[in-house]
């Protein structure tokens, strides 16, 4: 699969895969920093939110809705809908050229 015959849908698909990895990375950082940043001290010194130790509250109870919202944003604004079946004529998707053009226009005006 040479570069010049690369299916144009793959470029967008690769970008989306990287964004998913980035979201995974962000969730990890949040989880790690909250849990060990707030929770490494003496349990007697813990502060509490809603009856739970704050390290747990922020890393687990807050962390997971937060990543869901972040993900919603990423999917809503960065992911593109595309046909998944191949067009028998070209071997590529049918509406790819128009879809990518529309995508480029949208990106020009945020």
């Amino acid at each position: 699969m040479k570069k010049k015959t690369q299916d144009p849908r793959f470029a967008q698909a690769d970008k989306e895969a990287l964004l998913s990895l980035a979201a995974y990375g962000l969730y990890f950082v949040w989880w790690y920093v909250c849990a060990y940043g707030l929770g490494s001290g003496d349990p007697d010194q813990y502060s509490y939110v809603w009856g739970l130790p704050s390290w747990f509250f922020y890393s687990c109870i807050v962390g997971y809705p937060l990543i869901t919202v972040l993900l919603w944003g990423i999917v809503r604004f960065k992911f593109r809908e595309m046909p998944l079946d191949d067009d028998p004529e070209t071997g590529f998707g049918q509406d790819v050229s128009s879809a990518t053009q529309a995508a480029e226009q949208e990106e020009g005006q945020p």
Binding site: E16, S20, A23
Partner: peptide, 29 residues
């Protein structure tokens, strides 16, 4: 152990996102 279990939260979006549309397209092809 709850902290450990919460590592599983990203599994769905990571599987779908990383395999992604490239996988869906190639599987259909």
């Amino acid at each position: 152990w709850v902290l450990l279990a919460m590592i599983q939260v990203p599994t769905t979006f990571l599987t779908l996102g990383v395999l992604g549309k490239r996988f869906a397209i190639m599987a259909r092809r």
